[in-house]
């Protein structure tokens, strides 16, 4: 028990835990909606666009998080605009935005901040989260949760049957834009803890872990939150007790949970098939 609770004696671990809660609530449901829209790769693009935004703001002595959100919002607008064009393929759009954003971001960082600070922008530094980070993150998380609460059905329907959604008056372009903007904000919440390169793990991972076990959108969105919390808390414990960098530890735990989830789902599926075959034999 002390293995679990000892870390909470320290203020930096308490703040890291709160940051994990904010990231799990902000990223999980939005990531699930993004996966349903088959835009997980666009999430990749937006997360890398956090880097140049953060770099510009940091070089002017401002908060990197809000610069990151602005960078991701700009990438979201560019992505949404390009997705509307029929003459450009979605994967090409995402690959372009992704590589250009990361290149510009790293170039700016190399010119303006020390290497250690650059690493924090790229891979996060959840143990250094302060009160201001938590307040900003809570505001962004509230906005993201509002978008999910109000728009999740329309977003899911647009992903399921885009053509039919238009026939009942849903403005699918607006829905895409709202989803991308919510994604940009959620990634902004995750930047301080996980950085531009690892934030995607908390965005897409929980939904991928949950997917084999749910048959409806609502439960999928809800399940991403405890799964994100579980991965975040386990990652912090591994970091505290074994000295791993916290962000990479969380991302690694997510990968392990994903493999475990899919492995167990495969076994369950095989057993139910063999039971079904035995009944019909």
């Amino acid at each position: 028990m002390s293995w679990l609770l000892d870390p909470l004696q320290y203020g930096f671990m308490q703040r890291a835990l709160l940051e994990v809660v904010l990231i799990a609530v902000a990223c999980g449901p939005v990531g699930a909606l993004l996966s349903l829209r088959r835009l997980a790769y666009a999430g990749d693009s937006l997360s890398h666009a956090l880097v140049p935004g953060a770099a510009v703001f940091i070089s002017f002595g401002l908060s990197g998080e809000w610069g990151a959100v602005l960078g991701a919002l700009l990438a979201a607008v560019v992505t949404a605009f390009l997705l509307r064009r029929d003459d450009v393929r979605e994967d090409v759009v995402v690959a372009l935005v992704f590589s250009v954003a990361l290149a510009v971001g790293v170039a700016l960082l190399s010119l303006t901040v020390p290497a250690q600070r650059s690493l924090a922008v790229l891979f996060g530094d959840i143990l250094a989260v302060d009160r201001g980070d938590l307040i900003g993150g809570a505001i962004a998380m509230a906005i993201v949760s509002g978008v999910v609460l109000v728009g999740s059905r329309a977003i899911a329907l647009t992903s399921f049957d885009r053509g039919w959604a238009r026939t009942i008056g849903i403005r699918v372009g607006l829905i895409d834009a709202a989803l991308l903007l919510a994604t940009a904000l959620a990634l902004g919440v995750a930047l301080r803890g996980l950085g531009g390169l690892l934030a995607l793990a908390m965005l897409i991972g929980p939904a991928a872990i949950a997917r084999p076990w749910v048959r409806r959108v609502g439960p999928l969105l809800l399940l991403t939150i405890p799964l994100g919390l579980l991965a975040g808390c386990l990652g912090l414990l591994v970091s505290f007790h074994f000295g791993w960098a916290a962000g990479p530890a969380i991302a690694t735990i997510i990968a392990a949970l994903f493999l475990a989830s899919r492995g167990v789902a495969l076994v369950v599926d095989l057993r139910s098939r063999s039971a079904s075959a035995a009944r019909h034999a």
Partner: peptide, 26 residues
């Protein structure tokens, strides 16, 4: 041609509910 994504987490009733209660804010 209906939706092509057979893996989408939605039941038959969920699909019909899209018509019975089209998604609108709040």
């Amino acid at each position: 041609h209906g939706p092509a994504d057979a893996d989408f987490p939605v039941t038959a009733l969920d699909v019909v509910l899209q018509g019975a209660a089209p998604p609108r804010p709040f």
